[in-house]
């Protein structure tokens, strides 16, 4: 049954659609788009956060690419992105186990979300201590006869980044598990039971039955955790490595934060960095959406 685009039936639907998004558009226009547009404009100025506001063209952007550790920052942001697939896969397994009501599932389901409730400052401090030179992690290594691998984990580029990836993953597993559980509620029970009766293994059930049915949920999980990793992890980095050694674990959002808070801040530079970050995330999101649209075509 094909309905012409001009049929009254379709038109009502479109009007409903437009009216439905009006409130959101009004809020976002003032609260997000206007400040965003103003920030994009400021990124072409030497704005000091106050009255100095002269047009400098592309100077801030040129400075970022030539005179700042931008490529290190970008590398670090991309490395931290590794935590996204890790947390989603672990979160997925846990969600499936909880769904199948593994022994103690009620207890686990309550505790799994706890890290989200505790402040990043406390979590960061505990990670800093845990991976300190004399911290529990090295003590455990020594106890299990791997003493030769003990080291200053936060003092070297790649091990410090690995600790950060570990921390972000640990922090987000519960969030992912709950999101995926939410997506799994729509799987018809009989489909799942039938697969189990047919003798499908845990991995078959997870990847052949569940994953195809929660593509949209996974899309949401990927975009959200990607955006979060790009824009909101500086509190963890500040507490764990302080962006060091040197700039080796400083990310783009951490740098934006630093530039905003230094005395005599160059807000033009900081906003230009934010605009670049916006473009990077935009590219990732569009690619991701294309990918899931293709994956869910047969839905």
């Amino acid at each position: 049954m094909k309905i012409s685009a001009f049929s009254p039936f379709h038109k009502t639907k479109a009007i409903h659609g437009i009216l439905s998004i009006v409130p959101v558009m009004v809020v976002l226009l003032f609260i997000r788009l206007y400040p965003l547009a103003s920030s994009i404009y400021r990124s072409f100025t030497n704005w000091d956060g106050l009255y100095r506001n002269d047009w400098v063209g592309l100077k801030n952007y040129i400075n970022i690419f030539t005179d700042s550790p931008f490529w290190t920052l970008l590398r670090n942001s991309l490395v931290l992105l590794l935590s996204v697939p890790l947390q989603i896969i672990i979160g997925l397994f846990i969600a499936v186990l909880l769904y199948e009501e593994v022994k103690g599932w009620r207890f686990f389901r309550t505790l799994i979300y706890l890290p989200q409730i505790v402040s990043a400052v406390t979590i960061g401090y505990l990670f800093r201590i845990a991976f300190g030179l004399e911290g529990p992690f090295n003590i455990i290594l020594q106890a299990i006869n791997l003493g030769k691998y003990t080291m200053e984990w936060l003092g070297n580029t790649w091990t410090a980044l690995a600790v950060l990836v570990f921390c972000l993953t640990w922090f987000s597993i519960g969030w992912q598990a709950i999101v995926i559980l939410g997506g799994m509620t729509r799987i018809p029970l009989d489909v799942f039971e039938a697969a189990k009766l047919d003798g499908a293994t845990f991995f078959q059930r997870t990847f052949l039955i569940i994953v195809p049915m929660i593509v949209r949920t996974l899309e949401y999980a990927v975009i959200m955790s990607m955006v979060w990793t790009f824009t909101s992890v500086f509190a963890f980095i500040f507490a764990i490595t302080n962006g060091g050694p040197g700039y080796e674990t400083t990310t783009i959002d951490y740098m934006i934060y630093t530039k905003f808070y230094q005395a005599g801040s160059n807000f033009g530079f900081a906003t230009a960095l934010a605009v670049i970050l916006l473009l990077i995330i935009m590219v990732f999101t569009v690619i991701e959406m294309r990918f899931t649209s293709a994956a869910s075509d047969w839905e």
């Binding site: 050694p245 040197g246 700039y247 230094q262 005395a263």
Partner: peptide
């Protein structure tokens, strides 16, 4: 000192301390 100088100071000092710079 001005902000950018203090920032670089703070970030890079631990490297000087431990002989990496």
């Amino acid at each position: 000192l001005s902000g950018p100088v203090v920032d670089n100071f703070t970030k890079l000092l631990p490297l000087v301390l431990t002989g990496k710079m």
